[in-house]
Design a protein around this nucleic acid. Sequence first.
DNA 1: CTGAGATTAGGTCGGTTGTCCTAGGTGTCT
DNA 2: AGACACCTAGGACAACCGACCTAATCTCAG
Lengths: 207, 207
Amino acid sequence: MSDGALGGVSVGGSLTRDRIIVEADQLFYEQGFEHASFAQIAKALGISRGNFYYHFKTKDEILDAVISHRLVRTRSMLDGWELEGETPIDRVRSFINILIVNGAKIRRYGCPVGTLCAELTKLNHPARDHAKELFTLFRVWLRRQFEQLGLGDEADELAMHLLGFSQGVATLSSTFNDDKFVQNEVNRINEWLTSVTTRAEVQPEIL
Amino acid sequence: MSDGALGGVSVGGSLTRDRIIVEADQLFYEQGFEHASFAQIAKALGISRGNFYYHFKTKDEILDAVISHRLVRTRSMLDGWELEGETPIDRVRSFINILIVNGAKIRRYGCPVGTLCAELTKLNHPARDHAKELFTLFRVWLRRQFEQLGLGDEADELAMHLLGFSQGVATLSSTFNDDKFVQNEVNRINEWLTSVTTRAEVQPEIL
DNA sequence: CTGAGATTAGGTCGGTTGTCCTAGGTGTCT
DNA sequence: AGACACCTAGGACAACCGACCTAATCTCAG
């Protein structure tokens, strides 16, 4: 019922509830959580302002729903890469390629995960840890890829390095609005990935 | 007159004006520009709210003054490194070391430059370009160090790489509140710096 | 067709925001 | 002492925020 064009935001939720989540998701990304207001979301959806409080008790509750929604979407994206990518290296390159594929949006609004976590951390917001799970999702997924490459003992560190790399590129590409910089950094990290993984071939996989 | 404990915020400015700038600087960093309010700044300084508008016409004007203040401070910091560091490599390592020295604040509030630029970019704020100059300041300074190492043709790319690295580390260290991660990344980038600069010794400096 | 529950619209509330205005205070110079 | 520029306090303003409430509307089973 709530499936289809909206991508199945929630299972038992109503249509309006799902539309609110999707619209809030976008506006929280484009304007930041605090700056995005009910009035904006309502106007974009063509619904009444007071209508929100039938589906959500507070704004924070919407934020929680948005984060949960993002978690589901991210999980399915990672699962998709798991099926598409032949080798763990291919899959990791899928991650790196987000910077190219979503280049335009990242240049305009930054990384959805990074900017949200930064805002919530600064405000010491209760949903801080919930948003952090988005990062953890990528971290664990990347770690598993490196583990499968026989880099078990440093897999987590490599995962964090890649995560940090993507955040740095996102931040700078948005402030400098520089397309070429992104390409340079992606090339650089791809070389790094090759060197790390070929080094892994020398070290025999201990399983 | 306006010098001394405040570090000489402006030349012709009054004392109160300077105190507003210093306090706003801190609060804009800790809470974000939009979230920080006049009431907070006034309370922290023990002055009246309406008093602001004698020194500044709008909040954006305060922001401009804060950014200008940061630009001056940053410039003097870079100049200091120029004197302290024996070699360009030493100076670059001074830059990297901010992540350690200011580690606690960065874990709590993120990078002052990165988070401000991210917020202003997202809001499409007029002061966007002004804040961007903070990044440019570091970029040009780093570039010059690499040029002095005889890496002229790729100096700007190396500078941006280092800048991106610092931003990535700042973002992740604040969301994960992870001290060890920062140390790992700093070690990693220091090795990278060594490999880049020793490679430079092989290539003779063309001056 | 009717009635009960699910859903929505729109007004309202208290609080906060940036902005503006004006009366009053402070110090300095003639 | 008087005059004048500089500075400050505190209230008032409209606009906006999240939150709440209630009446109207829709949906659908009985």
